[in-house]
Design a protein around this nucleic acid. Structure first.
Lengths: 230, 230
DNA sequence: AGGGCTTAGTGCATTAATTCACTAAGTCAA
DNA sequence: TTGACTTAGTGAATTAATGCACTAAGCCCT
């Protein structure tokens, strides 16, 4: 393999790496030094061969007969995912969800500090929520530039979400996490991941319905989301 | 095909049906009566053949040369997903995210009213948030029974999430939406979907990193999450 | 030093998902 | 009524993902 080019990791594997990483953090906290693919597989709820294959995309970082080192592999996964640094985040939409996410510990603790929050509603602009003052979406461009923001999170209403996306793109953002139940249209150079909480419940509804109809005999497919961004 | 048995719809297709449904709602709101697979494909950002195949799993509800009827197909998708009725929801964990979700319009409007919210922290129990009083997680069983709750949403800390899941299962819940960054262990008869917001950002981070390394030349795979629940 | 044991890495078969490209079935205009 | 046109439905090819089962390496005990 030519050295320079980055390995092409399958989307499905990319989506699992953060899960492995989370588990490695827990192992480290429990002072575990080493683990085998079997152990990680059990903790992640997947097949051991899949763990080995996923990790092999990073390189050959295990030791046969022994396993993988927690700290070393943690480092490698973080490197691959681009987590050796922090990525600043701006939240667009200062409603319930937006404010909750701005305070949300799970962003900061994983290296994604929410640096700014903006809205287009004059009634919300200027309010303060957890040490952040709601800015004007019109100022997005300068905020993104001045605060070196890399990722935009859209928590507006469905109706405003496309405008929010347009504003983010215009401001130079190339990674968007969208919570509005809308398929955004953006240039192909921008990565978009959409989390539609309604969709999640509707999928559960399908299986619940199934269970009622079949009297609970239905088997459950494994839950796995693929990576990839549009 | 024997009539009684429910069609087996691929996970990937199940995950797309709610997206189509959302778009159909928008079309209906715009007084559109009919649409072709090409049109829906464009709106959903997918391939037209995929749309036709996905819809064909529901039955043969289109008309060749014409397309599909918005209201009729809406009905069929809702029937298939089990959305002809409401499913009551309980939120476990009355922190920022839990309270925001309890108020969140996107749940109620899609047929998933949040009927109760519980916590294990005495300081939070008894507080009121948007017409709901925080209950005690110890009372989960009776709450689930009395309020006919079908779905549990976990918004606790990572540390408490497994206990929350156990409590939900113990209370008879068979569908769980988990926001804690933990791989829950539950009986196989329970459907679990996990939404880890940190993971979503970490996936974006990967592509952002990639873009930096390759000078923006990287192509983007389409974002698609499969259904399925564990 | 050697043999048995453990476990990573991987080629290959299998399964799932996607997409192509064709066929069937309808509309509409003349 | 016929022929041109549109579009759903689907068999089959392709691509992606998974998981088995084997091989290669390293450790440890005697």
């Amino acid at each position: 393999m030519t050295q320079l080019q980055r390995r092409k990791i399958p989307d499905a594997a990319i989506a699992r790496l953060p899960v492995y990483l989370q588990i490695l953090n827990n192992l480290a906290a429990a002072n575990v030094l080493r683990f085998s693919s079997d152990e990680l597989a059990a903790l992640a709820g997947v097949n051991a061969a899949k763990v080995r294959k996923d990790l092999s995309y990073l390189g050959s970082y295990g030791t046969r007969g022994v396993g993988y080192e927690v700290t070393y592999l943690t480092h490698q996964i973080k490197r691959e995912l681009g987590l050796m640094r922090e990525w600043n985040v701006v939240v667009v939409g200062a409603g319930n969800l937006g404010c909750a996410l701005a305070k949300f510990d799970g962003f900061l603790s994983r290296g994604f500090p929410v640096i700014a929050i903006v809205d287009n509603d004059p009634k919300k602009i200027g309010r303060t929520t957890s040490s952040l003052t709601v800015g004007d979406v019109k100022d997005l461009k300068s905020i993104v530039r001045d605060e070196k923001i890399s990722i935009g999170v859209i928590t507006t209403s469905a109706a405003s979400s496309q405008a929010a996306a347009d504003a983010l793109v215009e401001a130079g953002i190339t990674s968007i996490l969208n919570f509005a139940p809308v398929v955004l249209s953006t240039p192909s150079s921008v990565s978009v991941r959409s989390v539609d909480l309604g969709v999640e419940l509707q999928i559960l509804s399908y299986f619940e319905q199934m269970r009622l109809e079949t009297g609970g005999k239905s088997e459950n497919a494994p839950q796995l989301n693929s990576a990839g961004a549009r």
